[in-house]
């Protein structure tokens, strides 16, 4: 349905935000777009909806060229932007209904659909509250509803779950799925790898403007085969343990957590080592589990923002 081919975008000032991006999103598919801060995700979706123009490459939706016709792009796509949508002076109900009608919906349909979304996202009690008095999460859910009230053929969601509490996050994911079930393609930007793993059909990881890997969550997880992750909670105040020589990676996540990745056949050794460390008073708790998509993600793009403790102690 959506085909992005060779999209390259260099901003004035020389930042190459997208570099030959290829993507395919099918109808009724939830497609995740992951990647570090500044990877070029927002830049990519802005080009799809015609807020930015690519230097090279094509963006085609249902056989129609969106780059050539940004007006068409706006009719065919609805977007929840990453920045909070300021709805100053409006209430969520007003903002959602007006957006629905501006997207071509009939007044009574927009009203009905707004009420249904308010129920489904459990924000009914704030629907008539003035925007200035809304909490961050309710604002975010409102802007999701604005993109979903009269969805485009393609619905673009740029970090929709930010600021949203865990219970409503599930409600939100259910609505994302409902959009796809209704026939729309959903292109969803997120940093939440754990949720993406559960909720997207396919995903791509962007790294400095390039797609480094693309596939289903299962395929991506398989790219780090036969690995186990050993989660350690470190004893406060004690010296952190030295990872064993046969560990593949060891990442210090924060002051008192360390993740040691080991080959699957070392499961027994790993458990033994962790038990010994626990007895020695360096480890409080540990857990051993198969690698997650997050591990695949970190292995692919590198844990640049975390302290590596493989060689010597971490800072």
């Amino acid at each position: 349905m959506l085909t992005i081919d060779g999209v390259t975008k260099t901003y004035r000032g020389g930042v190459r935000a997208n570099d030959g991006v290829h993507l395919r999103v099918g109808a009724s598919e939830v497609y995740g777009l992951l990647g570090h801060n500044g990877a070029g995700k927002t830049t990519l979706v802005n080009q799809v909806v015609g807020l930015a123009a690519p230097d090279a490459g094509t963006i085609v939706l249902d056989g129609q060229d969106l780059v050539a016709d940004p007006g068409l792009a706006r009719r065919l796509c609805s977007i929840q932007p990453q920045a909070q949508v300021p709805i100053t002076g409006l209430t969520p109900r007003r903002a959602i209904e007006l957006t629905g009608r501006l997207r071509g919906g009939r007044a009574d349909d927009a009203r009905r659909r707004t009420a249904a979304l308010a129920d489904a996202l459990d924000i009914g009690e704030w629907m008539d509250t003035d925007a200035a008095r809304l909490s961050g999460g309710v604002k975010r859910l409102t802007s999701f509803a604005m993109a979903a009230v009269v969805p485009g053929r393609l619905v673009i969601l740029d970090e929709p779950t930010n600021d949203v509490d865990p219970v409503r996050r599930r409600l939100l994911w259910a609505q994302v799925r409902a959009l796809a079930d209704g026939g729309a393609g959903v292109l969803l930007v997120t940093h939440n790898v754990v949720e993406a793993e559960r909720s997207v059909d396919r995903l791509a990881i962007l790294d400095r403007g390039r797609v480094v890997v693309e596939g289903t969550p299962v395929e991506l997880r398989a790219s780090v085969p036969d690995e186990l992750r050993l989660d350690l909670t470190l004893e406060p105040g004690a010296e952190p343990p030295d990872p064993p020589a046969w560990a593949l990676r060891a990442v210090r996540e924060n002051g008192h957590r360390m993740v040691v990745t080991v080959p699957a056949f070392r499961a027994g050794d790993a458990a033994g080592w962790a038990l010994a460390e626990q007895r020695a008073g360096r480890v409080e708790e540990f857990g051993l589990a198969p690698a997650t998509l997050e591990d695949a993600y970190v292995a692919l793009v590198g844990g640049t923002d975390r302290a590596e403790v493989r060689d010597g102690r971490a800072a």
């Binding site: 909806v49 807020l51 007006g71 706006r74 009719r75 977007i79 932007p81 920045a83 909070q84 949508v85 300021p86 709805i87 100053t88 957006t99 501006l102 997207r103 071509g104």
Partner: peptide, 17 residues
């Protein structure tokens, strides 16, 4: 101000000439 807070961009993303 509308430009800074992004409401201009949002309205620009709606299908309105």
């Amino acid at each position: 101000q509308a430009k800074t807070e992004g409401s201009l961009d949002f309205l620009r993303s709606l299908p309105v000439p």
